[in-house]
Amino acid sequence: MATGGRRGAAAAPLLVAVAALLLGAAGHLYPGEVCPGMDIRNNLTRLHELENCSVIEGHLQILLMFKTRPEDFRDLSFPKLIMITDYLLLFRVYGLESLKDLFPNLTVIRGSRLFFNYALVIFEMVHLKELGLYNLMNITRGSVRIEKNNELCYLATIDWSRILDSVEDNYIVLNKDDNEECGDICPGTAKGKTNCPATVINGQFVERCWTHSHCQKVCPTICKSHGCTAEGLCCHSECLGNCSQPDDPTKCVACRNFYLDGRCVETCPPPYYHFQDWRCVNFSFCQDLHHKCKNSRRQGCHQYVIHNNKCIPECPSGYTMNSSNLLCTPCLGPCPKVCHLLEGEKTIDSVTSAQELRGCTVINGSLIINIRGGNNLAAELEANLGLIEEISGYLKIRRSYALVSLSFFRKLRLIRGETLEIGNYSFYALDNQNLRQLWDWSKHNLTITQGKLFFHYNPKLCLSEIHKMEEVSGTKGRQERNDIALKTNGDQASCENELLKFSYIRTSFDKI
């Protein structure tokens, strides 16, 4: 039985969820670079991206490699990797027998973001014989899940209580170790020597080791999670996991709180800001991140802002960003909400898709409305799209047979046209069989910064309504002859009103 693990408890099935942008060198404390989270699957090609990484700022997932063999891993080693800020997950990587050479110096898994409450997941690794993470000293947050690894031993010899604050939620089941077939031998045991430290858990006094050649490092209890030197002297209180010299914040392997210019500090002093819960960055760093993602459509890219001495992905609820200094300031009234469309555009074809934009005031991208039916549609669209004030790209209304009016965009005031449909149009209306009105132009103002209007096959939309939009939106004169079809717009509506004058002759039985 794995020490510190839980057996036999019912657990939810383990679901495996399925960018080499360097964020800056980590400095003297770390020998390499800070790398983003990685999802490495199918083959070993991307694994080489770990070569210079000291910190993975995010998670590391290595999974679904069915053609790899043990010899493929023999020359692979990433000794610079010290810390993973989120979680480490391995799933069905064939041929991998140990992690001792792959990650010989991995010391800390912070667990800032977890995989279903777990910071370390080893699942269905069919050839893994031992973990071998002999320098792993601290899992700051989260638990361990090690399950269905039929060859995995050296679990009962690990004292997880020396690595985690609590072992109650560890789930370590259905491994070879369960069948008591392992016969784990710690260093020196074969020669009758006791080389590794022994600890007591559940009444068992057991030597602690990761492999037959690597003991588990056990520091004096007084050192807590700070770690200790090879001689057993406690590291500085700002260290986490390990250090090369005692009581020196510049000799830590990793930091308990924050890293700044080669030393570990309790908090980031001005003019620095907390970033990702582990390091200090200056304003320029946060500003660069903001600008890199301002026009990016890459998933996970955030326009970072500053709030409460932190550089964070977005302002919290009730705050909006001051564009001059990136500071989050309290909103006066309802907060603006910028919604970034991942692929640059979004099609609204149902109430469900409209709900995804609920509360958005600025759309960074283009909207395509293609709704053919739905219950209580006008009210639903207004509830979900009615706060949109600005669209950076274009607005396209296409084959939306259920629409009679666009009044559900009740606050839309600006279409920038930074991206144009077919390279020309910022407003595009095609084949809307029941569209009769755009907006009530006596109450609604709309500016279209650039781009043209396109109207074709809107049989109940009168040309007068379209011409009014040209005047109000500032697009009059931009359109070419064929942009607004004269014969297919309003051709099934009563669009022309003329005053009919009647004269009559009164007659009676005795007068003409």
Rank of each mutant, 00 (worst) to 15 (best):
H28E: 07
H28Y: 15
L29A: 14
P31R: 02
P31L: 05
P31I: 02
P31Y: 09
G32N: 13
V34M: 14
C35D: 00
G37H: 04
G37R: 03
R41F: 14
L44W: 10
R46C: 14
R46P: 08
H48C: 05
C53E: 00
V55W: 08
I56P: 00
E57R: 07
E57N: 07
G58R: 00
G58I: 00
H59Y: 12
H59I: 03
L60S: 00
Q61K: 07
Q61A: 00
I62C: 01
L63M: 11
M65P: 01
F66W: 03
F66Y: 10
K67D: 14
T68Q: 09
F73T: 14
R74K: 09
R74L: 03
L76A: 14
S77E: 09
S77T: 06
F78Q: 02
F78W: 03
P79M: 04
P79N: 06
K80D: 01
I82R: 10
I82F: 09
M83K: 03
M83N: 00
T85C: 05
D86Q: 14
Y87P: 04
Y87R: 00
L89G: 01
L90G: 00
L90Y: 01
L90I: 06
R92L: 13
Y94N: 09
G95W: 04
G95V: 02
L96W: 02
E97F: 14
E97S: 07
E97V: 12
S98H: 03
K100I: 05
K100R: 07
K100A: 05
D101G: 09
L102A: 04
F103Y: 00
P104F: 01
N105S: 09
T107A: 08
T107P: 00
V108I: 09
R110P: 00
G111F: 03
S112K: 13
S112G: 05
R113S: 00
L114M: 09
F115L: 08
F116V: 09
F116T: 02
F116S: 10
N117V: 06
N117M: 08
Y118P: 00
A119D: 00
L120R: 01
L120V: 12
L120C: 06
V121N: 01
I122T: 04
I122L: 11
H127M: 04
H127V: 04
L128N: 01
K129S: 10
L131R: 01
G132Y: 01
G132A: 08
G132M: 01
Y134A: 04
N135E: 04
N135C: 08
N135K: 08
L136H: 02
L136R: 01
L136Q: 02
I139N: 01
T140P: 05
T140R: 07
R141L: 12
R141A: 05
G142R: 01
V144I: 15
E147V: 12
K148W: 02
K148H: 04
N149T: 03
N149R: 00
N150L: 08
E151I: 02
E151Y: 13
L152K: 01
Y154H: 09
Y154P: 04
L155E: 04
A156W: 03
T157A: 09
D159A: 04
D159N: 13
W160C: 01
S161R: 10
R162H: 08
R162F: 08
L164C: 13
L164K: 13
S166R: 07
S166V: 14
D169P: 12
N170G: 05
Y171G: 08
I172E: 03
I172F: 03
I172L: 11
V173P: 07
L174A: 05
L174P: 14
N175V: 04
N175W: 09
K176P: 12
K176W: 08
K176R: 04
D177Q: 07
D177N: 12
D177L: 13
D178I: 07
N179H: 04
N179D: 05
E180W: 07
E181T: 06
C182S: 05
C182D: 02
D184P: 04
P187S: 06
G188T: 05
A190S: 08
A190W: 12
G192M: 11
N195S: 07
N195H: 07
N195T: 12
N195D: 12
N195R: 08
C196L: 06
T199S: 06
V200S: 14
V200P: 06
N202E: 05
G203C: 04
G203V: 10
Q204M: 06
V206S: 15
E207Q: 08
W210V: 13
W210A: 03
T211G: 07
T211Y: 02
H212M: 03
S213H: 06
S213W: 04
H214K: 02
H214Y: 03
H214W: 11
K217M: 03
K217I: 10
V218M: 07
T221P: 04
K224P: 09
H226C: 15
G227Q: 05
G227L: 03
G227W: 02
T229E: 09
T229W: 06
T229P: 07
E231L: 06
E231T: 07
G232P: 05
L233Y: 15
C234S: 02
C234Y: 13
C234M: 03
H236F: 01
H236P: 02
E238K: 07
C239L: 00
C239P: 00
L240D: 06
N242I: 06
N242T: 07
C243I: 00
C243D: 01
C243T: 00
Q245R: 06
Q245M: 13
D248Y: 00
D248M: 04
D248T: 04
P249A: 11
C252D: 00
C252M: 03
V253G: 06
V253Y: 15
A254S: 11
A254I: 02
A254K: 01
R256Q: 07
R256W: 05
N257I: 01
F258H: 07
L260W: 04
D261C: 05
D261R: 09
C264T: 00
C264V: 00
E266K: 00
P270H: 11
P270D: 08
P270V: 06
P270S: 08
Y272L: 10
Y272H: 15
Y273V: 10
Y273G: 04
H274G: 09
F275Y: 06
Q276W: 04
Q276D: 15
Q276C: 02
D277K: 15
D277L: 07
D277F: 04
W278M: 03
R279F: 15
C280M: 00
C280T: 01
V281S: 00
N282Q: 02
N282F: 02
F285W: 09
C286D: 03
D288Y: 10
D288P: 02
D288W: 08
L289R: 08
H290A: 11
H291R: 06
C293T: 01
K294W: 11
K294V: 10
N295Q: 05
N295G: 14
N295K: 06
R298N: 08
R298A: 06
Q299A: 09
Q299W: 02
G300E: 08
G300W: 15
G300A: 07
C301L: 05
C301F: 09
Q303P: 09
Q303G: 12
Y304L: 07
V305N: 06
H307A: 06
H307D: 15
H307E: 13
N308V: 11
N308M: 04
N308G: 08
N308P: 02
N309T: 12
I312L: 05
P313T: 07
E314Y: 08
P316F: 08
P316A: 13
G318E: 08
G318H: 09
T320F: 11
T320I: 05
N322E: 00
N322K: 10
N325V: 06
L327G: 04
L327V: 03
C328D: 01
C328F: 01
C328K: 01
T329H: 03
P330L: 03
G333F: 11
G333N: 13
G333L: 04
P334W: 14
P336Q: 02
